[in-house]
Simulated assay, not measured.
Amino acid sequence: MKSADQHHRNGSLRDSRATIMDVARDAGVSKTSVSRYLSGEFKVLSDDIRQRIEASIARLGYRPSQMARGLKGGRTRLIGLVVADVMNPYSVAILHGAEAVCQQHGYTLMLCNTGNDEAREKQALSMLRSYDVEGLIVHSQGRPSRFMYDLLESNLPVVLVDRRVSGIEVDLVGLNNRQACRAATLHLIERGFADILYVTQPIRAVSSREERHTAFLETLAARPDCRGETLELAALDDEAALDHALAAFMSRAGSQRKALLAASGVVTLQLVLALRRLGLTVPQQVGLLGFDELSWSKLVEPGISTLAQPTDEIGFQAATRLLQRIATPDHDHHELLLPGTLIVRGSTSA
């Protein structure tokens, strides 16, 4: 138990401003250990030391002085986060997880939204480099582009999120797409849906979409009693084209129960709206399972079954990996693929 004097001392530190030496004394570690923690050099610290430093930082309300640290070490303590679509809930969750790590270790996160546009990607990189960011977390379009090759030439530490880019060898953190789509497809089959339409945005050259689609096809290939096909949506807002394709699928001959498997949250939303326009009930007439757990998934009757991605954890791990890469730039590149979680609701009832 801390003495009254210790409590008073900690309170005084909160009232003024705790220093790195205050954190070191409170945690019972060296100033060097605290500096390494703040720089993301986690591998050189034991779990016990890291936890003591974390507790002291929280207890003392320690906030690193970015200006002082920058002047001393020639570092800006800035991290760039480039996302393809800031309106996508996936991007928001990634931001939340990454920001938690940056705040914890004294970095500031700068967000750039490219709107799935290659020209804006290039502008984002130019802007971030002008601020001397120390590293980048990138959720790109997923296709090779001048932007990605410029990244390689910049020698900035980079971690990709969700999507690999052909010819670009950097760290990646994302969902285990094959495992997740296999689990989703098997769930539909086990619930008695043997005629499945896989609905996705254009697949070509986007690694996460390719992996999910391949897993869907492979899972169905192992089940000759089941049937499946793929619908690629050229434009999400083309309601007439989507309604026509769904009507054709539903009118196809056969006694097998039909289901829709949506490859992303934005696709799930369009399917829910289309089913309402067509007057089709879920799951009586057609089952529905969608990638991504969205806030409204449980509110739409009878509840939408989803394959939830650990998006917050993906962002957290991406930022953690980037700080490690900044501290030790010569280490081999790695991929971290996290498992998804199947959340079963009424839309896939047997």
Rank of each mutant, 00 (worst) to 15 (best):
12 S>Q: 13
16 S>Y: 06
18 A>W: 01
20 I>A: 11
31 K>N: 14
34 V>E: 05
38 L>D: 00
39 S>V: 02
41 E>C: 13
44 V>K: 15
53 I>C: 04
61 G>D: 03
61 G>I: 07
73 G>K: 08
76 T>C: 05
89 P>M: 05
98 A>K: 04
102 C>I: 04
104 Q>C: 09
110 M>L: 15
115 G>C: 00
116 N>K: 14
117 D>C: 08
117 D>W: 09
118 E>P: 05
120 R>L: 09
125 L>G: 01
129 R>M: 11
140 S>H: 00
146 R>E: 14
146 R>L: 13
151 L>W: 05
154 S>D: 00
156 L>C: 05
158 V>M: 12
169 E>C: 08
169 E>K: 11
183 A>G: 12
185 T>F: 03
192 G>S: 04
199 V>R: 02
221 A>S: 05
223 R>L: 14
232 E>Y: 02
232 E>F: 01
240 A>T: 12
243 D>P: 01
246 L>V: 04
249 F>R: 00
252 R>I: 01
260 L>W: 12
264 S>R: 04
265 G>M: 06
271 L>V: 09
274 A>P: 11
278 L>V: 06
290 G>W: 07
292 D>V: 12
293 E>C: 10
295 S>H: 10
306 T>K: 11
322 L>W: 02
335 E>D: 15
350 A>S: 14
